[in-house]
């Protein structure tokens, strides 16, 4: 078994993908981080204190994890979802009754979405109370606030997609709040819904926002957010700056 694994690692194909080893030595360990597109936003080394649970409660990590879970389950759900009235609702029923594990994926998506909102809020408060927004991290705080708003928009746009009573009226109520904006409120609402009521156009708009536009924007902001963590001196550990 082990020899098979090492022989596999010896092949040219493996080596072309994973240029370094997995971690026999610190060099290899560093190289895995540096040479992995997903990990290279992180530094090779990290402050020990930053890993302590009490410092961050891992809230940022968990927020990101929920985002990944949402992307994966969301993409799978898209395979059975038509953003049209009233087919969208029928698709919910299909997920529930005939698609293998359909209801599980929908549940996972729904609960992960709620979890993400909670986690992102918690993350923000934790960062605030730790004072991690202080310079040089002030811009990353702003990015974080943007990500919080994006999270809310993502959740809100996704709320309409099942096209049930809950969805329809939640969006109706929510979009009516927007129309309270002075002077152009009604116009904003009109643009957002693609009509004067929550209708088929609104469903399609929310679908595109939820599945394409907002995730892309969020991904960009996430990348900036992570990159800035590193550039601003790693995770804030609350250590007093060295004299």
């Amino acid at each position: 078994m082990n020899s098979l694994y090492s022989r596999l690692r010896g092949t040219a194909v493996w080596r072309s993908v994973f240029r370094s080893g997995t971690g026999d030595t610190n060099l290899h360990r560093s190289l895995t981080v540096q040479q992995n597109i997903f990990l290279h936003l992180a530094s090779v080394k990290i402050r020990r204190r930053a890993l302590e649970f009490g410092v961050t409660w891992y809230l940022g990590t968990l927020s990101m994890a929920s985002f990944v879970i949402l992307v994966v389950t969301g993409v799978l759900l898209m395979l059975y979802y038509h953003p049209s009235v009233p087919q969208a609702y029928a698709d919910m029923k299909d997920l529930q009754f005939v698609v293998s594990a359909g209801v599980f994926l929908r549940n996972l998506h729904r609960w992960a979405a709620h979890a993400m909102v909670v986690l992102v809020f918690a993350h923000m408060f934790k960062v605030f109370y730790r004072g991690a927004y202080r310079p040089p991290r002030e811009f990353n705080w702003v990015v974080g606030v943007m990500l919080l708003l994006l999270t809310l928009f993502l959740s809100y746009t996704g709320y309409l997609l099942p096209w049930d009573q809950l969805a329809f009226w939640a969006i109706t109520v929510g979009s009516n709040i927007i129309s309270a904006v002075p002077a152009m409120g009604a116009k904003i609402r009109f643009l957002m819904l693609g009509g004067h009521t929550v209708n088929a156009n609104a469903l399609l708009r929310f679908y595109v926002l939820h599945c394409v536009i907002l995730p892309l924007i969020a991904a960009v902001f996430l990348a900036v957010h992570f990159w800035r963590i590193r550039k601003d001196g790693g995770l804030y550990t609350g250590d007093k700056p060295r004299e």
Binding site: L76, L79, Y80, D94, V98, V99, S100, A101, G102
Partner: peptide
């Protein structure tokens, strides 16, 4: 494996 089942519509 399960993805295969998920991807095969039952109805």
């Amino acid at each position: 494996v399960f993805g295969y089942e998920f991807l095969s519509p039952n109805a």
